[in-house]
Design a protein around this nucleic acid. Structure first.
Lengths: 346, 346
DNA sequence: CTGAAAGCGCTTACAG
DNA sequence: CTGAAAGCGCTTACAG
């Protein structure tokens, strides 16, 4: 089997010629102008269909100095959090008549510069960026200039870009309060790197909840590790090197929590029985792990829709106050019904 | 905080004017022509940087009648299979200098028509489509015409489009042989709809493996259900209504397998102990379910890279034979080490 | 109600 | 080595 023969493009000129009209009139038909005679319009529309005309939005955008695309730059779609976020962004952009230009940084700030430069050449009306770790705002600004509005998601960069963040502090507080309500008093914060803003904020929420309960964490209860399942499993032992050992842990995210559950199991402990664990993100795996994980639901798809509508609003009205002042997203705890703990009040 | 003042676009004309040159010469510099005097080139490059020039690829593409985008139409990024696939596509397209235009059909053939029409107006060089269920090839062809090459992924549509499919038959055979090797003789095929080509093919592989072992399935071992976790859990009972009941099931996909595991648990049976289950896809949840699932690894990310390189090859050489003749992807079984079964040879 | 003309930002033969 | 001119497919005042 061979490829079908490709045909050349049908242009307005072709339609105009066939209808004995000028390009201008055909263009008016396309754009739904009321000036055009009804009979003329009908003739043109029939011809458009007959020749299989496809509007060349790029040419129109060039002439009108507009753009109908928005660039979406994320870490990687392999991460369900970003995949859901991207799905939400695309859904809302499509509904508004925009097309999503996709780019992945792979969590590398170098690649981020390259990919962003490439996307900018496609003249997006706006940009939604979930910044790679270690992003330098100054370099970003140099690349971006002042032409294209950008919404930063998930990781604050400073600068005067719009920003949509999760209320990490509040989320971690919810998780910590959940464990306190179960009777736990020796609660660890497990995973993440203090240098990242989201980890920093989550730890703050954790400390605040403990402080409200008149508690303060032992230093050895705060354990750093890369936010991956594997690293978390490897670092599990760090929780138990010194007494008093914790009886529960607020984890930086679900990946870490799942790794911790595995790590506990290796040590003969059963999560949800000997040791309580909470996650953050509510990734699909959280619901099917054994036991199902109590976690902070972030609803990344809704965040995506929200990000899209923020950037669209900015495009409509460039003078609106920056979204950096918009209240952070509120989160809720999705507690697993199967996740009950023995009273372990120390 | 207010939005930064947006500035107008810097064009070749601006650079040319500043350097006392014509647009043509600046264009030659951009395109790396050896004709340009070295000193002139240096001056232009400095000025490009100074003014923060951004190449307008759309304008260039219009003039050159080229395109540097590829449209990717998938069901929904919420499905990790498609998210991984999309990640692979984007990775390979970006490496080749293309930008991905994203579109989601939500498994609706109506939306597929709408979204594809919108993407076509952005003049993609090619299209990668994972078709929605119930896609009508004739309507697709009407919309597409003969201008834009398309690669169909995962679900055969007929027509003379390029096609990349999984070797479903082989995968299901592997899963079935795995269960046979464990000693099972009464093996069900659970989930999916016969009408879908992938389900049809997987059942064929299952039957073939059984036939090779001198077995043929009882009719009640073939159970239809929608390929979702919930439906699978609901349909679990259908496996046990009549004797002889199966001792194992080859599931249509991982979602169905996880639903079946839940359904078994409701009935007091333990998957991997009283009843053996295999999946298909190797989604991330498969590894963390209890017990971890033995499944057919499809490596959707590699499929994405493959799809991208096929469409790129088609763009390079429109006359290459259609990929419909390309050998289907081979699959392998990812057996969970924790998944051991009692000998249950009937 | 319709057409001629100019122009969006670029490229590419063709001269010189 | 550099520039003038035409043109990609469209839109939009401006005439008529």
């Amino acid at each position: 089997m061979t490829a079908p023969a490709l045909r050349g493009r049908v242009t307005l000129e072709d339609i105009a010629h066939a209808c004995d009209l000028s390009r201008a009139t055909v263009s008016l038909v396309l754009r739904g102008s009321p000036l055009v005679n009804a009979e003329t319009r009908a003739r043109v529309e029939a011809e458009l269909k007959r020749q299989g005309y496809v509007y060349h939005r790029g040419a129109a955008n060039l002439r009108r100095r507009e753009s109908s695309t928005v660039a979406l730059l994320i870490n990687d779609l392999s991460n369900p959090f970003f995949a859901e976020f991207a799905a939400g962004v695309d859904e809302a952009l499509a509904a508004a008549g925009y097309v999503t230009l996709l780019g992945s940084t792979g969590e590398s700030s170098e690649r981020q510069q390259t990919v962003l430069a490439s996307l900018l050449e496609h003249d997006p009306a706006g940009i939604i960026l979930s910044p790679a770790e270690g992003t330098d705002p100054a370099r970003l600004r140099t690349l971006l200039g002042m032409r294209t509005p950008m919404l930063v998601f998930n990781r604050a960069l400073g600068g005067d870009w719009d920003y949509l963040g999760l209320d990490n502090t509040h989320g971690a507080r919810l998780a910590t309060e959940h464990l306190l309500a179960q009777g736990h008093r020796r609660i660890a914060f497990f995973g993440g790197h203090e240098a990242s803003s989201s980890c920093h904020e989550r730890r703050a929420g954790y400390r605040a909840a403990l402080a409200d309960a008149g508690l303060s964490p032992e230093p050895q209860w705060i354990v750093e590790c890369s936010p991956t399942r594997l690293e978390a499993a490897r670092q599990t032992g760090a929780l138990f090197v010194r007494d008093p050992a914790p009886t529960a842990a607020v984890c930086y995210n679900d990946a870490v929590a799942l790794g911790l559950i595995a790590g506990l199991s290796t040590r003969g402990r059963r999560a949800g029985h000997d040791f309580a664990v909470t996650g953050f993100d509510d990734i699909p795996e959280a619901a099917v792990s054994a036991p199902p994980l109590t976690t902070v639901a972030v609803d990344p798809r809704a965040r995506g829709r929200q990000a899209a509508s923020l950037i669209l609003q900015r495009l409509r009205d460039p003078a609106t106050p920056s979204a950096a002042t918009i209240a952070p997203v509120s989160l809720h705890l999705r507690a697993s019904s199967q996740f009950t703990l023995p009273g372990d009040a120390a």
